[in-house]
């Protein structure tokens, strides 16, 4: 089966700034594909080229076998888009917007079901300008899905939503995917990427650093384990650093923090037992996707791209 989205050697610059240097990626049918990366990494520019909103300087893009620039009419019927900054007329009511947008597509989804699914049913008669940020966000998700698209590209899906609304939105997206829609998610939320995405492309400085499952990405960052405990009596750091599975030892007050590979826990507990030291309040943390992100890009994942 041909890939749903194929991007090859995409390059895009704005005046003197290279937004996307060289991005290649493949999105498969039926998956939730995440695009993760720090601010200004080129995530949004990449998807805007895929949507046909921007003209790439170089490279090739196919969406469902269509060229985003030349086959616009056909593409817009099959591709649902949620823009990071895309609005509606201020005085348009929620239900009016959904009805209007559903008239644009040959086989639209049921807008009332979308309204319910996104918790906007009681806002049907509310004007766009009177909606809260989170409600506007949910409406823009609904509009991305209203055409019953084969592929939906969602940029900053849950930015501005409270935790409950975020979880509800994740459930909705999983439901949409289970009905056969392929989803591309641009995000900077690690929790969201970990929970929703089948595969992730990590983009940094306009290039794809790595494409893998969330677990695979974490593994490949080779961060291993972090072990914290309070020793029952003073322990010499050298006792631990001499272990081949341990990569580092630090102290946080009374606590000893040991970093090491997947065998570190075994090695540490063994050497402590041999020296009759009890590890109190022992905690083992697996590296998170966030740790992997920091390791692989050298940056912290912060807020959405500034506009």
């Amino acid at each position: 089966m041909p890939p749903v989205i194929e991007v090859r050697n995409l390059h895009k610059r704005y005046d003197d700034k290279i937004a996307v240097d060289d991005v290649s990626l493949t999105v498969r049918e039926g998956e939730i594909f995440g695009i993760l990366g720090p601010n200004g990494a080129g995530k949004t520019t990449t998807v805007e080229c895929v949507e046909g909103l921007r003209v790439p300087d170089r490279g090739e893009i196919r969406v469902l076998g269509l060229d985003p620039l030349h086959d616009r009419a056909e593409l817009t019927r099959r591709l649902g888009v949620q823009l990071q900054a895309g609005h509606l007329p201020e005085r348009l009511q929620v239900a009016e917007a959904l009805q209007l947008y559903s008239s644009f597509y040959p086989r639209p989804a049921d807008w009332r079901a979308l309204l319910d699914g996104l918790g906007l049913a009681d806002k049907a008669k509310t004007r766009y300008a009177k909606l809260s940020g989170g409600q506007k966000q949910r409406l823009s998700i609904a509009l991305a899905l209203i055409g019953g698209p084969r592929v939906a590209i969602l940029d900053e899906l849950t930015t501005g939503l409270d935790p409950q609304a975020r979880r509800d939105t994740w459930d909705l997206i999983e439901g949409v995917r289970s009905r056969g829609t392929t989803i591309v998610l641009v995000t900077h939320f690690m929790e969201e990427a970990e929970r929703l995405c089948d595969r992730l492309a990590l983009i940094d400085a306009g290039r794809v650093v790595m494409v893998d499952t969330p677990a695979g990405l974490t593994e490949r960052a080779r961060i291993g384990q972090r072990i914290r405990f309070r020793p029952s009596r003073p322990v010499d750091d050298r006792l631990l650093t001499s272990l081949p599975d341990v990569s580092g030892v630090t102290r946080q007050g009374e606590l000893v923090v040991v970093n090491g590979n997947d065998n570190a826990l075994n090695a540490v507990t063994t050497v402590l037992a041999r020296n009759q030291i009890v590890a109190e309040q022992l905690r083992v943390e697996q590296a998170s996707l966030e740790d992997a992100f920091v390791r692989l890009t050298g940056r912290r994942p912060d807020g959405p791209d500034p506009r």
Partner: peptide, 13 residues
Amino acid sequence: NGVLRRMRTTPVG
């Protein structure tokens, strides 16, 4: 406000 931009992504334009 991006209303026209949003319309660019629909079949209507």
